[in-house]
Design a binder for these strands. Structure first.
Length: 290
DNA sequence: ACTATTTCCTGGATGC
DNA sequence: TGCATCCAGGAAATAG
């Protein structure tokens, strides 16, 4: 499932391959399900816009857009409209297309003739002739437009230790739940929460507020370490995750606890335990993690 | 102001 | 083989 490393991989891949390209037309399959903004607003924002860049914020993919004139005649129309509005003259609003992949969302850069996958919910036709398609079987993904998108929580790779400690030290909720709370930290999901807690030798059920400063420091370092390693590996291909070119990542081969229930701990050989917290599975080593 | 639980959704795995 | 049931989980909505 796409978490920070997977979203980062997709965003980097797209940045390298579509930056500068222009969205000529947009097809939206469902007018409701995956859309957080009104369909008409999404289409109006995307069509005739140049993708200046693609980046990741939390688990969101952000396309920074720049309006371009569609044709000479529409450019003229645009100019006269701007004149009429008057007050907006000279003010440049930065439009953004925001994509959240949810559990099974994929952003794929495809050749126009290629087969349309089942559960394709959006197709952007680009001036280069290629198509950017959004496919999402489980439909937990979301599409929206914004002008100044910001994540609710701290960026795990940018936050400093002081802020990290401040965010978590007063929370009474289990540390695993706190790590999954995107309003606190944006980007960590179930896989990397479990992997980080293992590396920090902290059990998932521990109340966040019970962690010592040293444990929080270890957790802080573990999160950054595991996220960076996962990005290097192109993310974890669990479920249907692939990058924008349709290629799998391989960090799942380096998971130490996630998905390893009953298998021996790589450090002490104790069988890895799996418990369910708030409907989410948590994997940990009962011996290594305190 | 927090925290905990429920809900959405479908493919794949499991069981009889 | 076929059919029913369960399970995965991000985050918004709802409940406490």
């Amino acid at each position: 499932m796409p978490e920070l490393p997977e979203v980062e991989t997709v965003a980097r891949g797209l940045a390298a391959r579509v930056a500068g390209d222009i969205i000529e037309s947009v097809w939206l399959g469902s007018k409701r399900e995956p859309l957080k903004s009104p369909a008409a607003q999404i289409v109006a924002t995307l069509e005739s816009s140049r993708m200046i860049g693609v980046r990741r914020i939390g688990k969101h993919i952000v396309f920074d857009l720049d309006r371009v004139a569609r044709t000479p005649s529409s450019a003229k129309l645009h100019k006269s409209n701007a004149k009429k509005r008057g007050s907006n003259r000279g003010v440049k609003l930065n439009s953004q297309w925001i994509v959240h992949l949810g559990m099974t969302g994929q952003l794929l850069l495809c050749e126009p003739g290629s087969e349309i996958a089942k559960h394709t919910h959006a197709i952007l036709t680009l001036r280069s002739g290629r198509e950017l398609r959004f496919v999402d079987p489980r439909r937990f993904g979301r599409l929206s437009v914004a002008t100044d998108f910001a994540a609710a929580g701290e960026e795990p790779l940018l936050v400093d230790l002081e802020k990290f400690v401040e965010v978590f030290h007063a929370r009474k909720t289990p540390i695993k739940s706190a790590l999954l709370n995107q309003k606190l930290l944006s980007g960590v999901g179930n896989i990397y929460a479990d992997e980080s807690l293992f590396r920090a030798a902290v059990r998932p059920r521990r109340r966040a507020s019970s962690l010592t400063r040293e444990e929080l420091r270890r957790l802080f370092l573990s999160i950054q370490e595991v996220l960076k390693e996962a990005i290097t590996a192109g993310g974890s291909s669990i479920s249907n995750y692939v990058n924008s070119a349709g290629e799998a990542g391989f960090f799942q081969l380096q998971h130490r606890v996630y998905g390893r229930e009953s298998e021996p701990c790589l450090v002490c050989k104790t069988p890895i335990k799996r418990i369910v917290m708030a409907g989410r599975s948590s994997h940990y080593c009962p011996r290594c993690q305190k």
